[in-house]
Amino acid sequence: MTQISQSPAPRAARSNTGRFIGLATLTTVVALLPLALPNAFYVDVAIRIAILAVNGIALNLLMGYTGQISLGHAGFFGLGAYGSAVLTAHFGWSPLWALLAAAAMTAVIAWGVARVILRLRGHYLAMATLGLGIIISIVLSNETAWTGGPDGMAVDSFSLFGVPLSGERRWYWVFGGLLIGTVILAQNLIDSPAGRALQALHGSETAASVAGIDVGRRKVGVFVLSATVAAVMGSLSAHYAGYINPGIAGFLQSVELVIIVVLGGMASIYGSIFGAVVMGLLPQLLAGYEGWDSVLFGLIMVVTMIVLPRGVVPSLTARLRSTRFGTKGNAPC
Rank of each mutant, 00 (worst) to 15 (best):
Q3M: 14
S7H: 13
P8K: 08
P10E: 09
P10T: 05
N16C: 02
N16M: 05
G18Y: 00
I21H: 08
L26E: 03
L26W: 02
T28A: 13
V29F: 14
L33P: 03
L35P: 03
I51R: 01
L59D: 01
L62H: 11
Q68D: 07
S70W: 03
G75Y: 04
F77L: 15
A81W: 11
A81L: 15
Y82F: 12
G83D: 14
S84N: 12
A85Y: 15
L87W: 04
A89C: 01
F91Q: 08
F91L: 14
L96A: 11
L99F: 12
A102L: 13
A102K: 00
M105V: 15
V113R: 01
L118N: 05
R121L: 15
H123M: 11
Y124T: 03
A128D: 06
L130N: 15
G131D: 08
G133V: 11
G133P: 08
N142G: 10
N142P: 03
E143D: 11
W146Y: 13
W146H: 04
T147G: 05
P150G: 05
M153I: 13
A154V: 14
A154S: 14
F158D: 00
V163K: 15
E168L: 11
Y172N: 00
Y172V: 03
T182W: 10
I190D: 04
P193W: 14
R196E: 09
A197F: 09
Q199L: 07
H202W: 04
H202Y: 06
E205K: 10
A207I: 10
A207D: 04
A207R: 12
A208D: 07
S209Y: 07
G216V: 07
R218H: 15
V222H: 01
F223K: 06
L225F: 13
A231Y: 02
V232A: 06
V232D: 00
V232Q: 01
S237G: 00
A238L: 04
A238F: 04
H239K: 11
Y240H: 11
I244F: 03
P246M: 02
I248F: 07
A249S: 14
F251P: 00
I260F: 03
V262K: 02
L263N: 07
M266D: 00
M266T: 12
F274M: 14
V277P: 04
V277N: 06
W292L: 11
D293M: 09
L299R: 03
I300G: 01
M301P: 02
M301T: 04
V302F: 11
T304H: 03
V307M: 09
V307Y: 10
L308N: 05
V313M: 05
L316E: 07
R319M: 12
R321F: 04
S322P: 00
R324V: 08
F325N: 06
